[in-house]
Amino acid sequence: MSANVENFPGTPLSQADFDEGKILTTHWKPKLEYGWDAGVAISRYLAELKNGRIIGIKCSRCRSTVVPPRVVCEWCWEPMDDWVYLKDTGTVNTFSICYIRWDASRAKEPQIPAVIEIDGASKGAGILHLLDEVNADDVTIGMKVQAVWKPADERTGAITDIRYFKPT
């Protein structure tokens, strides 16, 4: 049937159609502001970040230690409550060199987001963070890194209490 159809429906518009007011539009700017509860596990995670420590949690059944901590083991469907302090070092699992901001505009300085497997957690358990104090071209998967913390009096209980990770 598709081969028999010459004109598919749809009216494409150009930017000029908008700029020159050729078509009518309505604009809406909602105020979408939220206060998200961090919850039981993440509240503790944040409190420990404020103390300068990364805390994970272990499943007493499958012995997995995961980070960020959570209240239920998704594999065993068992409650998790065995808190474990992890190291603040780890291994780069994967990374990117990012040149754009969230709205697709160009960033002034590139950033290096990475998934970092945290030492002391089960293999493969990582967190999202940024790398710095390293030339982007020198970053490799498998590279050992360590957390660079904000000074204790500047920490607020946030993932950004770790400023970034740098090569060890």
Binding site: T11, T26, W28, K31, G35, D37, R44, L46
Partner: peptide, 19 residues
């Protein structure tokens, strides 16, 4: 210890009125 995290969803909508 209970933490609340504040942020927003930064979107606006531009609707065409349609055919």
């Amino acid at each position: 210890d209970a933490k609340v995290w504040y942020d927003n969803i930064p979107i606006e909508s531009l609707y065409t009125v349609g055919i």
